[in-house]
Structure formats: structure tokens, C-alpha cells
């Protein structure tokens, strides 16, 4: 009955772990993003301070973008490693979700 069903992803034992990891990554990234907003509003002069040829605003902005990409790569790496555990060790159910 379903029209246009996308590929079904098989249920994996690492799911709970991945959800938790995602939340942790989010918890690392969000304060850094929020601090950018807060610093901009509370101390515009700090954003204008020199950092070599750059200033704080540019370094901060570029930094957030680069950090985001780096976190995404780390997240993928850990998730892939956990998923491998799903295939190799069928019995390791408890271990992967802790």
C-alpha cells in the first residue's frame, strides 16, 4: 500500500548510542554558537579586537564553520565504528548502548 517507500534501514543495535552521541555533539557545538551571539551583543568592541591581520569576529566566524565540519567528521567516524560493531558482534547488544 505504501507508495514510494524509501530504502528501509535495518534496525541496528547502535541506535541508542548514536542518538546519545548526537546529543553530546550538539551539546558541545551549541554553547560555542550561542557564545558567538552573546559576545556580539554584550561586547561588540571585543569582536573588533585585532587578532594579527584578522579580528575576533572573523576568527570566531571562520572558527565556528571549521569546528562544525570537524565535529561532523568525528561524529561520522564514531558512528561508523559503532555500526561495524553491529555487524561483527551480534551479542554485544548491551555494550553498544551504554
Amino acid at each position: 500500500m505504501e507508495h514510494g517507500q524509501p530504502k528501509q534501514w535495518k534496525t541496528e543495535k547502535s541506535e541508542a548510542y548514536k542518538t546519545k552521541l548526537g546529543i553530546i555533539m550538539f551539546a558541545i557545538f551549541t554553547p560555542i554558537y550561542l557564545s558567538f551571539i552573546l559576545v556580539s551583543v554584550l561586547s561588540p568592541s571585543f569582536m573588533a579586537a585585532d587578532v594579527g591581520k584578522f579580528n575576533v569576529a572573523i576568527v570566531y566566524g571562520f572558527g565556528i564553520i571549521i569546528l562544525a565540519v570537524a565535529l561532523a567528521v568525528i561524529y561520522n567516524y564514531i558512528c561508523s565504528w559503532k555500526e561495524k560493531g553491529d555487524d561483527v558482534d551480534e551479542t554485544n547488544q548491551e555494550g553498544s548502548s551504554s
Binding site: G22, I23, M25, F26, F29, T30, Y33, I64, I65, A68, L71, A72, Y75
Partner: peptide
């Protein structure tokens, strides 16, 4: 770009 992090992680 930061918005992607919400999409990906959460």
C-alpha cells in the same frame, strides 16, 4: 551552517 549541526546531530 550551524543549522546543519542541529539537522545532523539531533
Amino acid at each position: 551552517l550551524a543549522g546543519w549541526m542541529v539537522a545532523l546531530f539531533v
